[in-house]
Design a protein around this nucleic acid. Structure first.
Lengths: 353, 353
DNA sequence: CGACCTATTGATCGGACTCAAGGTTGGTGG
DNA sequence: CCACCAACCTTGAGTCCGATCAATAGGTCG
């Protein structure tokens, strides 16, 4: 059950509001002044905070300010309750970062609407949407339920790509972002000798190339279908509007990108000093956990040796030699182009030695 | 001169408001309904938009929605003007992403305050703050002028680190973020053989390690002073509050991070397939442009060979051999530990071959 | 001036790249 | 249904780049 913290000094007002919320199925914690409110917020970490502005001890934006300084409470949706006379103050509050405000006296359904809207949105971002692009797909799935975001996903143009078709080239202007409905796509960069380096593998539910969109509006890499793939093309504007207009989305993006940077840095470290053997092990595990995590145990990964080599960053022959070794040692098995991981632990040990 | 677009159907209201703004030194463009407003916004790209809600042709949030779909106009600060009766609608507008609202009738100074606040903030983000961490320092400098951000930079604890001192270790909890006042700091990761790989060089005006803060709250790398360095320790809460509470800051961060990811990807490509020679050339140019861009021509970079090797991702001896070669070929010159770039062009050609 | 640290050069060795030449697989058309 | 072609996979041999170990030169700081 969702927990709401209500900070309000007027006893009648407090009782009434709390009752309304409880009837609507929320668990309500109350505080009779700002200081107690902050204490409760830190102790209880509620899902949403309703807060009066004019209060003894510590006023409303005192509360907001205090909570904003603590990461644990900074992300809690915060709604001001303000009497009409405090109109100018509300503006100040919004600037401080409140999510919404309600002018007293308010209707029951005004209150519940505001609360529910915020809850729904906040919910969305608690779940998933952290681990790289895969979570981002889930995010969009959920986003459809939300009013503000409902446009995304409508007015789509679906499109089919066959194996080896190019979705977009490095340097293309990103007028839309492909969202993968089925199939697999790899993104890669090409160096001056024409060698490819794979920067990402994308499956069902992933966006492709949004990084370029954010960075410069131009694709930073080439995207190519690894098998027959159906994508939906989301207009650039929709994604940008979502990003620019919604604080929560922005913050999730920041976390996601920061995570991405960290991963790339680790990859750099690996590439700099690890042997091909270690890098192959690492790459196998990555791909495995990315794509084969659905079935039971014996999960094969089907990938061309050339592609795998481009992921590891080595020559195809070196890669194959390494695979042969691993096969001889019983860590993996191959069936045609499929690669099965037999000894997950040893592989892991090898990868991080 | 700052340009403001005023969208308002009531002629009196429009005249009065425009006059007030013009007296305050703004250039004002007016539109008498929503549709014309959108057209003007696209054509003129003003610095700020004031918009009535109830209008013929296209209402206020129709306007906001339209503008939100276009990247060029999505970032323009948007302030609603609403009559009291439209109270419920304003909330809806805020959810759609407006930056502020003014309830009619409003005082002159209410209007000007709201406009000025938004302008100031928007200004901040137009300038710089794009290119990696260096711009971020500038950003903070400017941020001091802004009300909402004034806390950051106050209550600082300055601290002195000597050469080789460690600011924080990989895995440390980031309770504060160092902001470099003078000196140089390198951040690096260590692989399992104990080899270091430098992920970043930071100078005056840079933040160090904010990536870890964003990602998990733990440092993802170790930071060490390369020379005697004075830093100011910004409390984590201040930086996070800034980020969480301000839309503009969030968006700038997203761009910065996306840029960062792109750079790392290019670095990966390089590391995967380029020879030590090419990587050395690249690294020299990077460091040069990062640190030596201040004086005139003959700008030496002072860096230990070990550090340089850790940046390139190679053994110290290999690096030195390569430097010797470059010196013989007349591309660079050395004076003690300083490295001077002689033939910038050839080096560039070498780096990107 | 001596101890210590950093830079440089030399010699050796191994991993990984390249080129070359068979095998396999899968798809296509007769 | 089979034969053939093309693309892909695999193995071998030779070569070279870069890591490592070792030793010497140069600078710096007490």
């Amino acid at each position: 059950m969702k927990k709401i913290l209500l900070i309000e000094d007027n006893p009648d007002m407090r009782e009434n509001t709390a009752e309304t919320l409880e009837l609507a199925g929320y668990s309500v914690v109350t505080a009779e002044n700002g200081r107690r409110g902050v204490e409760e917020a830190k102790k209880q970490v509620p899902d949403l905070i309703l807060c009066d502005i004019m209060m003894p001890e510590l006023d409303g934006y005192g509360v907001l300010h205090m909570l904003g300084r603590n990461p644990a409470t900074a992300e809690i949706p915060f709604i001001f309750l303000s009497a009409k006379a405090e109109r100018g103050d509300v503006r100040k509050g919004m600037e401080l970062g409140a999510d919404d405000y309600l002018t007293k006296p308010f209707e029951e359904n005004e209150l519940l609407n505001a609360v529910e809207t915020r809850m729904k949105r906040s919910d969305l971002f608690r779940k998933g949407f952290d681990r790289g692009s895969s979570g981002f797909g889930v995010f969009l799935e959920q986003a459809r339920g939300i009013d503000v975001l409902k446009d995304i996903g409508n007015g789509r143009k679906n499109r089919q790509f066959y194996k080896k078709d190019v979705l977009f080239h490095e340097g293309d202007e990103m007028r839309q972002v492909p969202y993968i409905i089925s199939g697999k796509v790899r993104t890669f960069m090409v160096n001056n000798d024409g060698k490819e380096f794979v920067t990402g593998l994308h499956g069902e539910g992933d966006f492709v190339g949004y990084m370029g969109l954010l960075e410069s509006g131009l694709a930073t890499e080439t995207a190519e279908a690894m098998e027959d793939t159906t994508v939906s093309l989301i207009p650039r504007e929709d994604l940008l509007a979502l990003l620019y207009k919604d604080r929560d989305v922005s913050i999730q993006f920041i976390k996601m990108l920061a995570h991405n940077v960290k991963e790339k840095e680790q990859h750099l470290l690996q590439l700099a000093y690890a042997s091909v053997r270690q890098r192959v092990a690492q790459a196998l595990l990555r791909i495995h956990s990315r794509f084969a995590g659905k079935n039971d145990e014996d999960l094969g990964v089907r990938i061309s040796r050339d592609d795998l080599a481009a992921i590891v960053g080595t020559a195809t022959e070196s890669l194959i030699r390494c695979l042969s070794d691993l096969k001889d040692e019983g860590l993996i098995a191959t069936q045609g182009r499929d690669i099965h991981i037999i000894d997950h632990n040893s592989l892991l040990k090898l990868a991080s030695r």
